[in-house]
Design a protein around this nucleic acid. Structure first.
Lengths: 189, 189
DNA sequence: CCCTCACCATACCGATCGGTATAGAACGTC
DNA sequence: GACGTTCTATACCGATCGGTATGGTGAGGG
């Protein structure tokens, strides 16, 4: 693994564990077995490091997500597969997932929030679009696609981020339960 | 308003807007029309200021919440009133609510997260207890009280925090919709 | 052979960080 | 009138912050 990639990985881990502001460039250098000049050689600045990190990770993830969120006249299947994907992804890359959600709710005017914001808006837009596309088959979604997108991502953020803290693991069975719960919540309204 | 209270208020606002780490004590002093020595006189340290702030605000809020979350054999009413309370509270004290949720998902090992953690665990416990108490009347909650508490607080955190960012306002009608959606999600399982 | 590029090592920069020392002003209470 | 408490003002501390300067090594490609 290249020095560049080692730096990015260490940064991802430390940022997700202690927060962007609380981690100094000097520590990133030593922990990745590298030096400050090397970091600035590759990423230009501390913020550039964060942005690069997020961009590279989000590219793959948003591509995956776009496929899963593609409406195919079976909304329950979409919802289930979405939730499952988030669960699996947070087991593949727990640091990245934790970082993304923590930055999502992090203070509006923080440096770090500004860096994720565009990606999270894209992600949110994918969810909204799913609900918009499903309107012809599910009339009671009309006018409420934003509401449902918010609820879904809120549910996911809270569940995925907080569950590990409470000793709860993310199982397929939970994904199934969540999707059922969410869908029946739609049918009923 | 006393100097002490002005400091606390300014701190609450700045912490919620830019984050605990990103706000210096010097700025808190000037913005509250006071000085650093005064801040240290009242709160001992920057962290002490945050802790005091959270403790005082959470005392009232958790008391309110405990009353609302008291099970009275009408779970839908509990859920609706809980959601409504969160909506109203985030209009009364938007800074505090934003701060609390952002710290909830903030990195596990950050200084600031450690300061809210006990309060948020208390809050979570109130929700879990509600679902536990409702088991005799709603058998399908059995074994899943933690699941439902997580979903509810996740829904609330995401909705309350993200909605304003997307230009969505929090209306009573949304609270009603959320509670219905949540309850039907329970009935169905 | 030479140039570029990825990298290392050390040392430094000015600015800001959290926190304190010192000294004194305004205040109500005994 | 002495006293504790709540402040203000100024100046300072060592440590750490993000970022840079200098000077170099070693490998790959034209």
């Amino acid at each position: 693994m290249s020095t560049r990639d080692r730096i990015a990985e260490v940064a991802l881990q430390l940022f997700s564990e202690r927060g962007y502001d609380a981690v100094g460039v000097a520590e990133l250098a030593t922990r990745s077995g590298s030096t400050k000049p090397t970091i600035y050689h590759h990423f230009g600045s501390k913020l550039g490091l964060l942005e690069t990190l997020l961009r590279e990770r989000f590219e793959d993830w948003l591509e995956r997500l776009a496929d899963i969120a593609q409406y195919r006249h079976d909304l329950p299947s979409n919802i289930y597969r979405l939730i499952l994907a988030f669960f699996q992804f947070s087991q593949e890359s727990p640091h990245f997932v934790r970082l993304q959600w923590s930055l999502w709710l992090s203070p509006r005017d923080s440096t770090a929030h500004a860096a994720v914001r565009p990606f999270l808006l894209q992600q949110h837009a994918l969810l909204e679009q799913l609900f918009i596309d499903a309107i012809p088959d599910h009339g009671n979604l009309r006018g409420h696609h934003r509401h449902y997108a918010l609820v879904l991502s809120g549910m996911l953020a809270g569940y995925v981020s907080a569950a590990p803290q409470l000793g709860q693991t993310l199982l397929e069975q939970d994904a199934y339960r969540l999707s059922k719960q969410f869908m029946y919540g739609i049918y009923a309204l």
